[in-house]
Simulated scan of single mutants.
Amino acid sequence: MPHPDAQPPLGRRRHNRPIIDESVNFPAEQATTQFSAFSRTVCVARLAAVLIWAFWVSIIQFVLIRLPGSGKIRVPRIFWRMISRILGLQIRIVGTRAGKILNAKDVQRGERPIIYVANHCSWLDIPVVGGTLHTVFVAKGEVGSWPLIGTISRLGRTIFVSRNRQNTGKELQEMTEHLWNGDDIVLFPEGTSTDGSRVLPFLSSFFAVAKPGRLDQAGMPKPPPTLVQPVSIVYDRLEGLPVGRSRRSVFSWYGDMDLTPHLWSFCQWRSMRATILLHPPLDPENFRSRKELANATFKAVSEGAAKLRQGLVPDDQN
């Protein structure tokens, strides 16, 4: 999540402005006024559609979360996929998902839940990942108190964590319970969101549930065997054109940036695309330490993100 010391990239205001269609035969000032008004109207319509969609899906999920079955797992993916469509965000998936919908009996029989590990540069990562994978998010504790977003997060069975070391054991236990129940989990181990131009080194502490040590297990149930699947996320198309460094600020949300202005600016663009690259899964048992596992996962995610930014990953890569 946002880091207090992060700085916004230069030229943010200029690059966040929606593109004006210069093919329309308006005088320059009239065209700017017409399309600015149109972009704002589109933005308002999108945000209204998001609220209406969230309201009805929240009612459905409120019921499903109290019932047995996989409905409460499938509905969040449908919800986030539709949110992306409403926002005009196309999602390209490259690679194969390692996970599938499991239950507690499957895990007891030896099926392994998946811990997805991804880079993090924006709030957009949530609908992108949530619309692609059947997974439970791990979010900072204050998200649970945010209006609407907190409610949606709880209905999505989000695991809330704090920076208080005294709560670490409780949070690991909650993750362990989810894994034993068959849930897959997604982690953003950079510990903060970035400007999208690079991937920060991963904090090995995030991998405690994948490769617990003796101290982690003291007085706590042991997590089931899992697989770790690295995931690279890059926002690579804006209005049908490749996204260079100067345009990444359209998507990035980090530091002390306010969410509302960023959301208002983003929703005025007409079409965007995110590519999510799913790497081969890693077996934590093949690594001697948590640090080695974190480094191997970081290498896969960072190299994959670099290739995506350079446009070197074709659609048909497996």
Rank of each mutant, 00 (worst) to 15 (best):
H3E: 13
P4K: 06
D5G: 09
P8R: 14
P8E: 15
L10Q: 14
G11T: 03
R13P: 08
R13N: 12
N16P: 03
R17W: 09
P18D: 03
I19C: 12
I19S: 14
I20V: 11
N25P: 12
E29D: 15
Q34C: 13
S36I: 13
S36V: 10
S39P: 06
S39I: 11
R46E: 03
A48S: 12
V50R: 03
L51Q: 14
F55G: 10
W56C: 14
L64V: 12
R66I: 12
L67K: 13
P68G: 07
P68S: 05
G69C: 06
G71V: 11
K72L: 12
R74P: 08
R74Y: 12
R74C: 08
R74F: 12
R74N: 04
P76G: 03
P76V: 14
I78F: 15
S84I: 03
R85C: 11
L87W: 01
Q90L: 11
I93Q: 03
G99T: 05
K100I: 08
I101M: 09
L102Y: 06
N103A: 02
N103Q: 08
V107M: 00
Y116Q: 03
Y116I: 09
Y116M: 02
V117E: 01
V117A: 02
S122H: 05
S122M: 02
W123Y: 07
D125F: 01
V138Y: 00
V138R: 00
G141K: 11
V143D: 04
S145C: 09
S145K: 14
L148Y: 07
L148C: 09
I149S: 12
T151H: 10
I152M: 07
S153L: 03
S153Y: 00
L155Y: 07
F160E: 06
G169T: 01
K170A: 15
E171R: 11
E171P: 09
Q173P: 11
T176A: 03
W180C: 04
G182K: 06
I185W: 02
V186K: 08
L187G: 01
F188N: 05
F188K: 07
P189N: 07
P189M: 09
T194N: 05
D195A: 00
G196K: 01
L203I: 05
S205P: 15
F207K: 02
A210S: 08
G213M: 00
G213D: 01
A218V: 11
K222Y: 11
K222A: 15
P223Q: 01
P224T: 06
P225A: 12
T226D: 04
V228S: 04
P230G: 03
S232D: 04
V234M: 09
R237W: 02
R237E: 02
L238F: 00
V243G: 00
V243I: 06
G244E: 11
R247H: 15
Y254V: 10
Y254M: 12
M257E: 10
M257L: 07
D258E: 13
L263R: 09
W264S: 15
Q268T: 05
R270I: 14
R270D: 07
M272L: 14
R273T: 08
I276C: 01
L277A: 11
H279R: 06
P281I: 13
P281K: 10
P284H: 00
E285K: 15
N286T: 07
R288D: 08
R290Q: 13
T297M: 09
F298H: 10
F298W: 04
S302I: 06
S302F: 00
K307I: 08
L308N: 07
Q310H: 15
Q310G: 13
G311V: 04
L312S: 14
V313I: 15
D315V: 13
